[in-house]
């Protein structure tokens, strides 16, 4: 798994370097979770809508759409689309839009995200539709911790609980940083676990870079009939020493030298 996630990290950095823009920090913090999801947990056919199992697939919504490179890297390396498409990230006419776009018709991308605070409600709507249609798939949605400051997230947490959704799993990529600095300093979310529990969720805290912990929590949540929120403690910029825990790498591309140094660390 480590070799695989190193490859994903390299792809993420190359994409952002090539595009001269993007969001490395939050992609590197959630990429281990995405790797485990797609390798071990989600039941999603690689041939996407051409598969007879398309309608019964699990759903994954990347609510923190700015981590698009993590999603694109995982999808490409899992064979959803040609890996060469990664070179087009953020370039005019590309299917790999800055934030995931369903208009781009890219295998593996569900709905468009990017404007924060909306992915969870979308996931709730999908979960309701699956329940109406008696489809036993699970809906996974990944949010950023900073994103939890959006009021609309709490509206949909309330709705998920009210609707007693047992087919929804929430993962929070808690990297403790947002654009303007530490989440605790900008607008604290604490106690996040208690708040989620008060909203009717079972919470599980994990190390979001420990593959075993990630897998165990996701598999248990997938089986569980109780609404689960996995709080994954992560490091923004994880894997590249000079990016780790540094908010300034939220939305900045590495230059040639920085890319070289980062790739050397990862290879």
């Amino acid at each position: 798994m480590k070799t695989f996630t190193n490859k994903l990290r390299c792809d993420i950095l190359k994409m952002i370097h090539n595009a001269k823009s993007g969001h490395p920090g939050g992609a590197l913090s959630c990429v281990d979770i995405l790797a485990v999801l797609y390798k071990k947990v989600l039941n999603i056919p690689k041939d996407w809508d051409k598969s007879p199992d398309f309608n019964t697939r699990d759903r994954f919504i990347l609510s923190k759409g700015h981590a698009s490179t993590a999603l694109y890297a995982v999808l490409a390396n899992c064979g959803f689309f040609d890996i060469n498409l990664l070179n087009g990230f953020r370039i005019l006419g590309s299917k790999l839009q800055g934030h995931p776009s369903s208009r781009a018709n890219l295998a593996g991308v569900e709905v468009s995200t990017g404007s924060l605070g909306q992915g969870l409600s979308i996931a709730v709507g999908i979960a309701l539709a699956l329940r109406l249609d008696n489809i036993n798939s699970k809906v996974f949605v990944l949010l950023g911790d900073g994103e939890m400051q959006e009021g609309s997230v709490w509206e949909s947490l309330m709705n998920a609980n009210h609707q007693k959704l047992d087919n929804l799993v929430i993962i929070i990529d808690k990297n403790h940083l947002q654009i303007d600095g530490a989440t605790d300093e900008v607008k604290t979310l604490e106690p996040l676990d208690k708040k989620l529990e008060a909203f009717g969720f079972k919470t599980v805290q994990i190390d979001g870079h420990n593959y075993n912990e990630i897998e165990k929590a996701l598999i248990e949540a997938k089986k569980s009939k109780k609404l689960t929120a996995i709080i994954a403690n992560t490091i923004k910029g994880k894997g590249v020493s000079f990016m780790e825990n540094n908010a300034s790498w939220h939305g900045k591309a590495p230059n040639d030298e920085q890319l070289k140094a980062a790739l050397e660390e990862l290879c």
């Binding site: 709905v111 409600s121 979308i122 996931a123 709730v124 999908i126 539709a129 509206e155 949909s156 709705n159």
Partner: peptide
């Protein structure tokens, strides 16, 4: 087939989006 989203219009619109995404 009726969902009252409460006094939470933003949540209603995005929940509607999720339902529509699944063919409703």
């Amino acid at each position: 087939r009726f969902f009252n989203c409460g006094i939470a219009e933003q949540d209603m619109m995005t929940t509607a989006a999720g339902l529509a995404y699944c063919g409703k």
